[in-house]
């Protein structure tokens, strides 16, 4: 445990010292601030484009604002996370940093898990910051905004992204280069998308189902209790992926 804490401190220090502290939270925050503004302006923008034909566009609501925000986070935000994290183990090994760190008597599992924990911390802080901004702007620009709906959706988004982060860590510990780790991550994400089609059970409980719950949450729609099953399945998936990452990395020549 002591080793783990020490390595975690090292990882956090590294995030603070490098560009990563600016990129992920900066982009997330940007989406939080701009999504509500864009949603508010969208009818006018579209209106000026189609001209005077007289198409009436429905008024945007806080749900549309949340929808835009979570769509941005799930696409560009996720892309930024993958690009900045995929090299985390592969590149350290390439540059010889991992070898240096592991000459000290620290177990390999602590090294891998500290990577995951530090990145999860950064992700959580980024998402919380971004949601704070998104909620604040949505509340200013739209009426009757429900805070709790967005908060629940943020929690679901975080769980989903925690699974993806575990995929990235596994890919990074498997790969020799950053690019290969990126490729493997994409492959892993495709597998997660395929999983629900393999059986009814997986269709209902695999982590991919979180996407549907995310939409229901920010729309303020009722959420059935099967979400807890999906959440439990997601945690098991994370544990399996990290277990595999530790196992692979422990067997590797450095």
């Amino acid at each position: 445990m002591k080793n783990f804490a020490r390595l975690l401190a090292k990882e956090i220090k590294e995030i603070l010292r490098t560009y990563k502290l600016f990129v992920v939270p900066g982009l997330f925050l940007l989406f939080g601030l701009t999504s509500p503004i864009l949603t508010k302006l969208l009818p006018e923008l579209l209106g000026s484009m189609v001209g005077e034909i007289g198409i009436s566009l429905p008024e945007m609501t806080w749900v549309d604002s949340y929808a835009q925000f979570f769509k941005n986070l799930g696409q560009l935000g996720l892309l930024a996370l993958i690009l900045t994290t995929m090299g985390t183990i592969a590149e350290e090994r390439n540059r010889g940093v991992a070898q240096l760190v592991l000459t000290k008597p620290v177990p390999r599992w602590a090294y891998v898990l500290a990577k995951y924990a530090a990145n999860l911390l950064l992700l959580t802080l980024s998402a919380a910051l971004a949601f704070g901004a998104a909620w604040f702007y949505t509340d200013i620009l739209f009426s009757d905004t429900i805070f709790l709906a967005g908060l629940q959706a943020t929690a679901i988004f975080l769980l989903n992204t925690a699974v993806i982060l575990a995929v990235i860590i596994l890919a990074s510990s498997l790969s020799k280069s950053t690019i290969a780790a990126g490729g493997l991550t994409v492959l892993g994400l495709i597998l997660l998308k395929v999983l629900p089609f393999l059986s009814d059970f997986l269709g209902k409980y695999s982590p991919d189902a979180l996407g549907g719950y995310l939409v229901r949450a920010y729309s303020g729609a009722p959420i059935d209790s099967a979400l807890w099953g999906v959440a439990a399945f997601s945690l098991v998936t994370i544990a399996l992926l990290l277990g595999a990452a530790v196992w692979v990395f422990s067997g590797k020549e450095l």
Binding site: Y19, F22, V23, G26, L29, L30, L33, T34, I37, K40, L41, E44, L45, S48, A133, Y137, I140, L141
Partner: peptide
């Protein structure tokens, strides 16, 4: 659009600050 920008220009200050912060860091 112009009215909206005129009445809500304060909303863009944080956006501009983040952009500036990223540029300076880079």
């Amino acid at each position: 659009m112009a009215e909206f920008l005129a009445s809500h220009w304060q909303l863009f200050i944080p956006v501009a600050l983040i952009d500036l912060g990223l540029k300076i860091a880079a």
